[in-house]
Design a binder for these strands. Structure first.
Lengths: 135, 135
DNA sequence: GGTTGACCTCAAGTTGACTTGAAGTGGCAG
DNA sequence: CTGCCACTTCAAGTCAACTTGAGGTCAACC
């Protein structure tokens, strides 16, 4: 099994070594051996880091993320919980889509004052509703 | 023009008064008057707060968000910049969609070990690629 | 064999986004 | 007029997620 030096893992994942050490310290990833002082990582950690990166993007804390995946990097949650997370993501995807649409609309709409453009107003109404709805 | 007390605005937006004061302090929102000591907010701030909430969800810092909107709450950026932001959101929406699909797949897939399921592997490949690609 | 350079540890510092606490103010209900 | 209570200011505290710095190790190239 091929093992990775922290520098290599850093390049593959885009995260600086200090971050990878920090992640190991908090138990988010693990090194499987040492070569002298140097940590050696399994290649599967690359996948784990990709999942971590996506999880962060989705707004989860590192603690949340730690709870979602087992040591082998596979998600380890009851089915119902997984579906709840997925539902939350759907919600978030919808919101981001609205924000994107609002931005694109404003970029292209020739109206002088957007607050009076009916299309923009409609987009903003959705925004208020969903923002208020969230905890 | 109807004005809102900070407590009312807090209820409407879901953000605690301390947060609203903080946002005013950093210039993200503005109160238009005082009733005695009490800040009075324009109702349009509700919309602004909704935009702020969406912006945060999209991973923008408060400083970024402050730069994106003029005092009246309408986006105030050159068209090209707006489209760039929208493109970034598209990218992020795609990633979140993949994360969601991965979660749903794992919830429903009967395979013993997901790391060997071809569908899961494919999802993870995308994940690695896009995670590595980002800054 | 010496010096580089990538790694190591551990403690402390930083940043962003708030929150908390102490001490005070002011409008309105009774 | 007396309380009450939601507001006010300002400084300091908190938390997550890292980053930085000092001082040390080790394998490898010249």
């Amino acid at each position: 099994m091929k093992l990775l030096d922290i520098g290599i893992l850093s390049e593959l994942s885009g995260a600086p070594p200090s971050t990878l050490r920090y992640y190991e310290e908090i138990g988010l990833i693990q090194s499987v051996a040492r070569n002298g002082l140097r940590r050696q990582f399994d290649t599967l950690v690359v996948t784990q880091l990709a999942l971590i990166s996506m999880g962060k993007m989705a707004g989860f804390s590192l603690a949340d993320i730690k709870g979602m995946f087992a040591k082998d990097g596979t998600p380890q949650l009851p089915r119902a919980e997984l579906h709840l997370r997925a539902d939350a993501l759907d919600e978030q995807i919808r919101d981001l889509t609205r924000l994107r649409d609002a931005l694109r609309h404003v970029a292209d709409c020739p109206a002088e004052t957007h607050m009076e453009c009916p299309k923009f107003k409609r987009l903003m109404e959705f925004a208020s509703r969903s923002a208020g709805a969230r905890k």
